[in-house]
Design a protein around this nucleic acid. Structure first.
Lengths: 136, 136
DNA sequence: CTTGACCTTGCCATGATGGGAAGGTCCATA
DNA sequence: TATGGACCTTCCCATCATGGCAAGGTCAAG
């Protein structure tokens, strides 16, 4: 496989460079989050530095918990020179609200369980306020 | 459909009494979380107060975020007179750890995003530290 | 007898990811 | 030049808990 001087690479190399698995790169392409990759004559996908940059963008956005559909919108804004930062900020703050809602739910669960566990002897006897609560 | 005096009910009534959807009741049965329900001659599932009690137990455990496999274990302990409360407590505290780990992850995401958003003008101009971070 | 509310099973979808199979390609080394 | 290993391809299946829908059967009241 002969690649040009512009440092084209296979999917495995792009995966390493971007910390996005080859599996996911193919998946992102299949759902249209990434444009269809170029191919060698034998069918191998080819990626360049630009593609890797996009992959890193997606990877970073995923690491901040953005769902793929929001990342689709963020990518469009990133590429759009006439975007308004207000649009980006709205997506981000909406996601923060989602996170905060989920955090609050889980904190309530954890608080309840810690409280119940605190009153559970945790010994060999069967009496257990945790089960009592679940069965109430 | 004639039901006995022990207040047997159809799946829809059991669903209302337990706040578990009929769909989920069937699903729990299919994965063996619930024993196979009794049936009328025509094939309708029948539930009694005991079944509803179990359903409420599952519902409460789900509302505390326990995964179904853990609920399977909790149900077994609930039914086991020779259980030790230590086993129950361990399952609960393990789940609390899971919750706390996820909460911490999401808090880190939210913190980062709030910080980035704070520095984003959120106006009609394209400059945006949020995109800058994602693209860095 | 009709109608509407309920029940049955079975299939598909979600969201993001991984696993694995069956088969093709590339390249270095024996 | 042949072989082997590392890589690539597509396709299907699994996760986890839940919902939706479709086609068809049952029940009870009017």
């Amino acid at each position: 496989m002969v690649m040009s001087v512009t440092r084209e690479m296979t999917i495995g190399q792009a995966a390493k460079s971007s910390a996005v698995s080859a599996k996911m790169i193919r998946h992102y392409e299949s759902i249209g989050l990434l444009p269809k990759a170029q191919r060698t004559r034998s069918g191998y996908r080819l990626y360049d530095e630009n593609d890797v940059h996009t992959l890193r963008f997606i990877q970073r956005a995923r690491s901040l918990g953005f769902p793929l559909e929001t990342i689709r919108a963020l990518l469009a804004l990133w590429r759009n020179r006439r975007r308004s930062s207000a649009q980006v900020k709205e997506l981000a703050l909406h996601h923060v609200e989602d996170l905060e809602r989920k955090i609050a739910e889980m904190q309530a669960m954890a608080r309840t369980l810690r409280h119940l566990a605190q009153h559970c002897h945790g010994d060999e006897r069967p009496e257990c306020p945790i089960l009592d609560d679940l069965a109430r």
